[in-house]
Design a protein around this nucleic acid. Structure first.
Length: 153
DNA sequence: GCCAACGTTGGC
DNA sequence: GCCAACGTTGGC
């Protein structure tokens, strides 16, 4: 049987919020320019589920759920000279930055705020709460994911 | 807006 | 390949 992988992806709601995703239905998750985060994006598979996390806002927390619907997409912003994500060292032959297309699934009626996540999970269980961690894309173990999802039912 | 913690860059 | 300088992230 296929196992679903779980992820957590951060976005600043002032830049792109879950409400924006709900309206758009799906989006290319562009703008990731960190190799570790990109490597996680490369590992994603169609059907994987990702928690949408609102960062750099008050209060920060997990606000909803989305699904990976396309993988191995070249981030188009790397080729756009006017984009803040333009990467002159990347070529269309071998794009440096790949990402995924995500589809909106749901907005949680109660977001799971960062203090709650810190309370429930150790830094070993959940990368997000590891001190100093700044990754914008990271894996979530299925055990942790199921606890998060159970919180909401 | 502050600033600690990171990641990246580039001179050497 | 070291590491200082610089830029970014993101909680507070």
């Amino acid at each position: 049987m296929d196992s679903v992988n779980y992820w957590l992806m951060k976005s600043e709601p002032e830049v792109y919020s879950i409400t924006d995703l709900q309206k758009q239905r799906e989006t290319i998750w562009d703008g990731v320019r960190n190799y570790q985060a990109r490597n996680f994006l490369r590992q994603m598979q169609i059907g994987d589920l990702a928690f949408f996390y609102h960062s750099n806002t008050n209060p920060p927390g997990i606000v909803g759920l989305m699904r990976i619907v396309k993988t191995g997409i070249a981030d188009p912003t790397q080729f756009e000279p006017t984009s803040k994500y333009y990467d002159p060292k990347s070529s269309s032959d071998s794009p440096r930055w790949q990402t995924v297309v995500v589809e909106y699934m749901e907005t949680f009626s109660h977001p799971i705020l960062l203090p709650t996540l810190k309370e429930k999970f150790s830094s070993d269980e959940l990368l997000l709460v590891r001190p100093g961690n700044r990754l914008s894309v990271m894996p979530v173990t299925s055990a942790v994911a199921k606890k998060i999802l159970a919180e909401l039912s």
